[in-house]
Computed example of a mutant assay.
Amino acid sequence: MSQEVRGVIARAKGAPVEVATIVVPDPGPGEAVVQVQACGVCHTDLHYREGGINDDFPFLLGHEAAGIVEQVGAGVTDVAPGDFVVLNWRAVCGNCRACRRGKPWYCFATHNAAQKMTLTDGTELSPALGIGAFVEKTLVHAGQCTKVDPAARPAAVGLLGCGVMAGLGAAVNTGGVTRGDSVAVIGCGGVGDGAVAGAALAGATTIIAVDTDPRKLEWARGFGATHTVNARETDPVEAIRELTGGHGADVVIEAVGRPETWKQAFYARDLAGTVVLVGVPTPEMKVPDLPLLDVFGRGGALKSSWYGDCLPDRDFPMLTSLYLQGRLDLDAFVTEEIALDQVEDAFGKMHHGDVLRSVVIF
């Protein structure tokens, strides 16, 4: 029997979000209903509200979430009622060309719930990233539920569902950061600080955080940055080169998603170094004008990172274990805990750089 719960929706482009009654159907084959315990307020949710993803309004926002499986549909065997899970938005299919080639983190046919959650008048909702977790209970594909150690704090490990995983994975999975590397991270919000933390975990010896906000640079030091560069005061390319013996960093991670900062990343890397784009650009942005000879002559790799090239059932339990061991401080990403009706205020704080993450607690 369907349930009625409270959730946060965006009805129209640019309109303030609102709390509404959401109808959650019983799970069908391959689906699960999850009682959400915590959900982070991510910049992607703001992109949805502003029409930056698509125009399939109304949206049920929220996707960085952890909670307890309440019900499962027919054929579900990997999770069961009572399991503590982190939700993910890349539930791999196992059959597409990427999965068959042994690269499931690139899965081109990821799963979402087949049924739609609705408003009480029957209006179908578009769940953010196929999840929709600013809601007391949500319907997802069972493959979007990744079991982790229930000893973990939901507000902390839920952030693995998007921003922290995107940044950490950009360093470890996409950038291949390893012991002794030099790393520069441009943009030190939640994703950028995830990249800093990932570089530290991987054993990088020089980790340079670049931002224009002194508060964010101080936060980055807490996650393992060995040096900071205020790009309002110093040319970041020259500063990164100076801090790496005049050569540039082995890996430069761009966590802003703007042409000018991507160009800085390109010239701030060492010869044969790697640039990783994990910041999300908007549709009108173009690759900056670069001499093709520079692209050829500098060698190395120019990569983009989708969700930190993660495999949730591999990475989420491992990172949760590191968190519980005290080796990955996920709690430090949680700036504040808020109620469901404070999401609009949290967007304002995020826009002004006042928080790393506001987390809705249910």
Rank of each mutant, 00 (worst) to 15 (best):
T212N: 10
A204Q: 12
E254L: 00
F223W: 15
Q264S: 08
T274K: 12
V196C: 02
E218R: 13
W262H: 06
A249I: 00
G245D: 10
A220L: 12
T274H: 02
T212E: 07
L217Y: 11
E254S: 07
E260D: 14
T206L: 11
T261I: 08
V256Y: 06
E233Y: 13
A184G: 01
V237I: 04
A268D: 02
I186P: 05
E260H: 10
T228D: 12
I207K: 03
V252K: 08
G190N: 13
G192N: 11
V252C: 07
F223T: 13
N230S: 05
T226Y: 11
D193I: 15
V191W: 15
A195R: 01
A255N: 07
R241H: 12
A255P: 05
G273P: 00
A265S: 05
D270V: 09
E233V: 05
R215T: 12
A255R: 06
V191D: 15
P259V: 00
E238F: 06
A209V: 07
I240T: 03
D250P: 13
A272N: 15
G194A: 05
W219D: 10
V185S: 02
E242F: 01
G192T: 11
C188M: 10
A239Q: 04
K263A: 14
A239W: 00
D250V: 12
G192A: 10
A231W: 07
A225P: 13
H247P: 15
R215Q: 15
V185N: 10
A220Q: 09
R241T: 05
A255I: 07
A220K: 07
A265H: 01
L201E: 13
D235F: 05
A195D: 01
D270L: 07
I240E: 03
D211E: 13
P214F: 13
E242L: 01
H247D: 14
E260R: 04
D211I: 02
T212P: 07
V210S: 10
A220H: 06
D211H: 08
V210T: 07
G190V: 09
A265R: 00
T212R: 11
Y267Q: 09
V252N: 01
E218G: 12
G192I: 12
V237Q: 06
W219S: 02
A202I: 03
A249H: 02
V196P: 03
I186L: 14
G187M: 06
I186D: 06
T261P: 06
A255D: 08
E233S: 12
T274Y: 04
A268P: 03
E254I: 00
R232D: 06
T206H: 06
R241C: 07
R241L: 09
D211F: 09
A195Y: 03
V191S: 09
G187N: 07
A231F: 04
R232W: 06
D235G: 10
A220P: 05
R269A: 00
V251I: 11
P259E: 00
G198N: 09
V185D: 01
H247S: 15
T212Q: 11
E254T: 00
L271D: 14
V196L: 00
